[in-house]
Amino acid sequence: MSTEMKRRIFLKRSLAAGTVGVAAAAGMLAPQQILAAWNKEAFESKELSGALNALLGSSDTAESADITVKAPDIAENGAVVPVTVETAMEGVESIAIIASNNPVPLVANFVMGTGATGFVSTRIKMGKTGDVVGVVKAGGKLHTAKKEVKVTIGGCGG
């Protein structure tokens, strides 16, 4: 076999391998989006915009009056701050809860499945006084609402 032929075969094979590689990568991505394997980058991001970009693919948010963030005005104990995010919007895909002054601002992200309505309630830790932000993803857009919570004793250090 001439070197020319060999090169052609080599090219063909590498091309084929390339296609398989792309397909595998696409296959890897699809289940990740469904299962949304824990998003390390988003949950380790120290900045809000970075966290939103990594989690939801955008940090472009608009404040919305349709979202209610329920949290106490003053939290005596920052280790347990009850937070409820509620919205009547249609097609809610996910709700993220952010404590803007925490060492890691992104606290939780709830991905809504079949039939789930725009309501989540949980308890979070807050390091110091700051805004609790609810980010609702609905119809491909990000909507936010916030509520300031004054923290008497921080719940992140100690």
């Binding site: 299962l35 949304a36 824990w38 998003n39 949950f43 280790a79 347990v80 701050v81 409820t84 404590a99 925490n102 890691v104 992104l106 606290v107 939780a108 992200n109 709830f110 991905v111 809504m112 499945g113 079949t114 039939g115 789930a116 309505t117 309501f119 989540v120 309630s121 949980t122 308890r123 979070i124 830790k125 719940g155 992140c156």
Partner: peptide
């Protein structure tokens, strides 16, 4: 129906509620 991803920022002995 619901899948949540959390950081360590959720309180000890976590509570969640959804509909």
């Amino acid at each position: 129906v619901m899948m949540a991803e959390w950081s360590g920022g959720v309180s000890k002995n976590p509570y969640i509620s959804f509909k």
